[in-house]
Simulated assay, not measured.
Amino acid sequence: MQLIMKLAFKLVRLNHYLIAALTLALVAISSALAYLIEPETFGTLFNAIWWVMTTVATVGYGDYFPKTVPGKVLAMFLYVFGIGLLSLLIGKIIDSIASFHKRRESGKLKVQESNHILVINWSKKAQLAVEELLSSEPGIHIVIIDDGDKHPYDRPNVQFVSGDPTSIEVLAMANIHAARSAIIFADPRIDDASLVDGKSLLIVSSIEQAAPAVHTTVEIVIEKHILNFRHVQVNDFILSHDAVSRLAVRSALKEGSVDLFTQLLSKQFGEDVFDITPDPAWLTYGDAFAALLRQGATLIADRTDMSINRKLDMKIPAEARLFVISNEDTIHKIRSERRY
Score class of each variant (00 low, 15 high):
Ile117Lys: 04
Ser123Arg: 07
Gln127Lys: 13
Leu128Tyr: 15
Leu128Ser: 13
Ala129Gly: 10
Val130Phe: 07
Glu132Pro: 06
Ser135Arg: 13
Ser135Ala: 13
Ser135Ile: 10
Ser136Asn: 12
Ser136Tyr: 14
Pro138Trp: 08
Gly139His: 12
Gly139Glu: 13
His141Cys: 02
His141Gln: 09
Ile142Asn: 06
Ile144Pro: 01
Asp147Val: 13
Asp147Ile: 13
Gly148Cys: 06
His151Leu: 07
Tyr153Leu: 15
Tyr153Pro: 06
Tyr153Ile: 10
Arg155Gln: 14
Pro156Ile: 09
Pro156Asp: 10
Gln159Asp: 15
Val161Phe: 03
Ser162Pro: 03
Ser162Val: 01
Gly163Asp: 00
Pro165Tyr: 03
Thr166Gln: 09
Glu169Leu: 09
Ala172Tyr: 12
Ala172His: 11
Ala174Gln: 03
Ile176Gly: 01
Ser181His: 09
Ala182Lys: 00
Ile183Ala: 06
Asp191Arg: 13
Asp191Ser: 13
Asp192Lys: 07
Asp192Phe: 06
Ser194Trp: 01
Leu195Val: 11
Val196His: 03
Lys199Asn: 13
Leu201Asn: 00
Leu201His: 01
Leu202Ile: 05
Leu202Trp: 05
Ser206Gly: 11
Ile207Met: 05
Ala210Lys: 06
Ala210Arg: 05
Pro212Ala: 06
His215Leu: 09
Thr216Gln: 09
Val218Tyr: 01
Val218His: 01
Glu219Ala: 04
Ile220Thr: 06
Val221Ser: 04
Val221Arg: 02
Ile222Tyr: 04
His225Tyr: 14
His225Asn: 15
His225Leu: 05
Phe229Gln: 00
Gln233Val: 11
Val234Tyr: 05
